[in-house]
């Protein structure tokens, strides 16, 4: 991948700060067609996530939390309303721009099968950097540092099928944070690991949130995650049912 970037791409990579808000959803609706029935996954939702948050979107399945996360991650497009990331209206961007936005500004951690099975831990972790066209030397430096941070020192050459679920999630986290994204979106990151492993993953994420200032937004109903969150947004039927910010 070439290192040459257009001005547009560079602009996308620079954080645009409007107040403290990193994500702003305004009257967002997402309707799915399921057969002949219209299902309102997200219904007229307005929400702001601020920089540095460590927030959970919670709710029973079907409440719209994953859809919300996908729309914030530019993976899904609302039928109405606007989604802004770092002050940029996602509705105005092209497919390619959205793709670049995801690559440069958003980190993703999914619940399972997060990694390319044919790539090693190291290669998976550096994947996004490679997509960005970061030169090999700098990529290596950054990736090794992050792998060290997530505690995978010495496991760089393992393939996903040679690692535990927790180790795999750590690789996914490393991949998410290597490019220094504005926000990491994590969809049920602890769903497929035991509670002990979940604990260590969450600790890692919390550390990264606190030391590096990376914003984390989870979609989960795992109490372990909610315990660590400072803000819990509960959704029901596509709407915000509750929005609690803990005070420590």
């Amino acid at each position: 991948m070439s290192q040459g970037h257009t001005g547009k791409e560079n602009k996308l990579r620079e954080p645009v700060q409007i107040g403290g808000a990193i994500v702003r959803l305004e009257k967002v609706s997402r309707v799915y067609q399921q057969g002949k029935v219209e299902v309102k996954a997200v219904d007229d939702l307005s929400l702001i996530i601020n920089k540095g948050e460590f927030t959970v979107i919670s709710g029973p399945s079907g409440s719209g939390k994953t859809t919300t996360l996908n729309m914030i991650g530019a993976l899904d497009i609302p039928n109405s309303g606007t989604v802004e990331l770092e002050g940029r209206n996602l509705g105005t961007l092209s497919r390619t721009q959205l793709s670049e936005l995801r690559r440069d500004r958003i980190g993703f951690v999914f619940q399972a099968y997060n990694l390319a099975p044919v790539l090693t831990a190291y290669e998976n972790a550096e994947f996004v950097l490679a997509l960005q066209g970061v030169p090999a030397a700098r990529r290596r430096e950054r990736t090794m540092k992050v792998l060290d941070e997530v505690g995978l020192n010495g496991l760089e050459d393992r393939r996903p099928d040679e690692m535990s679920g927790g180790q795999q999630q750590r690789v996914a986290i490393a991949r998410a944070i290597c490019p220094r994204p504005a926000i990491v979106l994590a969809d049920e990151p602890t769903a497929n690991v035991d509670s002990h492993t979940a604990e260590s993953i969450l600790t890692l994420m919390q550390q990264l949130n606190q030391t590096d200032g990376i914003t984390f937004l989870f979609s989960t109903h795992d109490p372990q995650v909610m315990e660590r969150a400072r803000r819990i947004i509960t959704m029901r039927d596509g709407k915000v049912f509750d929005d609690i910010t803990k005070s420590f």
Partner: peptide, 16 residues
């Protein structure tokens, strides 16, 4: 498909 989905999500372009 899932693998491709993840790669697309993290920023791989459809052309790639």
């Amino acid at each position: 498909q899932r693998e491709f989905g993840v790669m697309l999500a993290v920023g791989l372009k459809p052309g790639s």
